[in-house]
Each structure stands twice: as C-alpha cells, then as structure tokens.
Amino acid sequence: MELTEKLGQEIIRRLSKYIDVPINLMNPHGRIVASTDPTRLHQLHGGAKAVIESQQPNIITNGNADDFSNVKPGVNLPIFHHGELAGVVGLTGKPEDVMQAARMTQGSVEITLDQMRLQKEAFFQERQWNHWLQKLLQPAAVDTQELEGEAIYTLQVEIHKQWQVVVYQASSPYELAERLIPSLEYLNPLFILPYEDHSVVAALPAQQPLTIESEADVLTGVGEPGYSLDGLRQSYQQASEAIELAGVHGEVVYSSSLKTERLMNHIDAAVYEEIATEYILRLNELEDSYVETLHCFFDNNLKMNVTANDLHIHRNTLIYRLDQLSKKTGLDPRRFKDAIILKTILLKESL
C-alpha cells in the first residue's frame, strides 16, 4: 500500500490542526500528493527522491538546500508499510525544531496505513465468510467437498465438529452482529455473520446446556447440535423454523422444545387442506373465547383444573365450552385423535 493523494490530503487535514509547520507528503516516486501549501501539489520533491534512493532520513539545511531540487530546509523521513517504502513525509523548518514533529507525523502515517490494511483484510475476510455462508445455507444441495476445501484452506477453520446454530432476526442485522460478537466471543464461535436482509447467524460449539440471551426487539431461535456442514445446515433450518413457529420478541425459542410443532408443520399441504378445510371454516365462526380456551387447554396438556384456573373460570364453565366446541366444530378436544387435528390447525393457521 502506498500513499495516495486522497489519503494524504485527509492526513494533512487532520495533522495540520496539531502541527503548526508546513507539511508535505510524497508518494514512492517523490511526487507531492498532499501539502499544507496547495501550490506545491504534484511537484517532484528532490529531498523525497534522496530518501527513496537511500531509504534513510534526509536532512536539508541552508547549507545543502542547493543540492536538491524544489526543496526548503527541513526534515524528510521515509514511510514504511510492511517493510516496503510507501512514501515520504517532509516538514519545513529548522531541522532541530521540526524533527520531533516529523517523527510524530511519520508514525501517524505508518499507523494509518497499518489500520487501513487491517480493515481491508477484515473486510475481505468477512466477504469470504459471507460468500461461504450463502453457499452453505442455500436451499439447493451444496457441494460439500468445495465448502470443506474453502473452510480449511481459505478460511482456515476446522468444521468437523459438533455445532449449534443460533438465528437472530432484527431490523438492523449489521448493528446486531456488532453487539453480539463481544457477548459470544467466550463461546469460541465458528462465525457470527449477518445473513440476508434481517438475520444474524451464529455457529457455536455444541455444549449442553447452551444458554442464549436475547434482546427486547429481537427474535431468537436455537437449533439442535449437528456435525460438520450437514449439521450446520440442519441446525440453521431448525433455528429458523423455531422462530417461525413460536418466535416472540425478547425470548429465546429452542427447536428441541418444539418437536411436535415441527412435525405438524411438515404435514403434506394437500393432505392438510383436504382434512382441515371444513374445520377451519367452523373454527373461524367461533367467538374468540372458544379459541382462547382451546389454546389454553392444549398448553396445559388437556388438564381440566389447570386450564380452568388459568382462564379464571369455573370447571363447569370449561366443560360447557368444550362441549360447545365439540358440537360446533365436530371435533372434541378431549379426544386424542380430534385434539391432534385441532392442535395442527391452531399451529398452521395461527388462530
């Protein structure tokens, strides 16, 4: 990386607030790319040429100024980046007066170049991870051998382990990812990456129990442990489905607690429509209190007393409602087979 005009001008703009002497920044060819004196831009600087040839500091005094073209007394120092000459910094004035400021400017520029390199590397690595994640989680079949090769040789990670995927859904996934990284670092995640337009996906080493916290405005689903690439894909699908089935903002939903719901969710659509349509129509004609009763009855594992207490009604009132449900829908929620149909409808229709 070498000193460019755009970068040089930004550095000059910032440093000139603290250093009250003329500053020039030259590229590796000795041409001034930034200066506190705009009239000197794009000129060749003889002192910088001497630095480039020797890769050593060049001190210019009144006594030797005539030995170099287009110079004034001052100090010219090399700027190195990764062992290569990236440019030259020059400060005008008595060498003994400006040397310290010149050293500070030299260090500031080198630090800036290092930070830019690290940012570019981080950006490039994030793009590699995002590209890999897109291929891993695509709905179609994946090229396992290709993904394994990229993981090992490009991303330099070991994927042949047990992983558990956490999916977060939020309106600002990039901001959420930045907040999540510090809080999940201790778990040694494989990755924490924004995915698509509204999600953050985190792959964590499988451990029992895995305790995850959520934020108030975030939907969070946790998949079950899985091995290597296939396990990552499956755990991601489970976590996403957990959010779809039971996601509540601010709460964490574990796929392992939704096995019945997941099974019902994958019933063949044509078969479901054939069986459920007439019952859906009847349920839609009921008052809200009946549907609420159904939900509570199933949530309490068909226990009459617990359901009545939760609804704050007398047991006889509950029995009356269940009798009416049976009469009006043709399905009795107290019978196992009928309860399965009703529970499936409640799940799939979000009644």
Rank of each mutant, 00 (worst) to 15 (best):
Met1Gly: 14
Ser16Gln: 15
His29Thr: 08
Asp37Ser: 07
Pro38His: 01
Leu44Asn: 04
Glu53Gly: 06
Glu53Thr: 10
Asn64Asp: 05
Ala65Ser: 12
Asn70Tyr: 03
Leu77His: 11
Glu84Asp: 07
Gly93Arg: 00
Glu96Leu: 05
Ala101Cys: 00
Ser108Lys: 05
Asp114Gln: 12
Leu118Val: 07
Leu118Met: 09
Leu118Gly: 00
Gln119Glu: 13
Lys120Cys: 02
Lys120Leu: 09
His131Met: 10
Leu133Gln: 13
Lys135Pro: 02
Pro139Glu: 08
Pro139Val: 05
Thr144Val: 14
Thr144Glu: 15
Glu150Trp: 09
Glu150Ser: 09
Ala151Cys: 06
His160Val: 05
Gln162Arg: 11
Gln162Val: 01
Tyr174Asn: 13
Arg179Leu: 09
Leu180Tyr: 01
Ser183Glu: 08
Tyr186Ser: 14
Ser199Cys: 07
Val201Cys: 03
Val201Phe: 02
Pro205Thr: 01
Ala206Pro: 03
Ile212Asp: 04
Ala216Ile: 04
Val218Asp: 06
Gly223Glu: 08
Asp230Phe: 08
Arg233Glu: 06
Ile243Tyr: 10
Gly250Gln: 11
Tyr254Pro: 06
Lys259Asp: 12
Arg262Ile: 08
Leu263Asn: 14
His266Trp: 08
Ala270Tyr: 09
Leu281Lys: 15
Leu283Ala: 12
Leu283Tyr: 10
Glu287Thr: 14
Val291Tyr: 07
Leu294Ile: 10
Asp299Lys: 12
Asn301Leu: 11
Asn309Asp: 14
Leu318Gly: 10
Lys328Tyr: 06
Lys328Glu: 11
Leu331Ile: 02
Ala339Gly: 11
Ala339Trp: 00
Glu349Ile: 00
Leu351Lys: 11
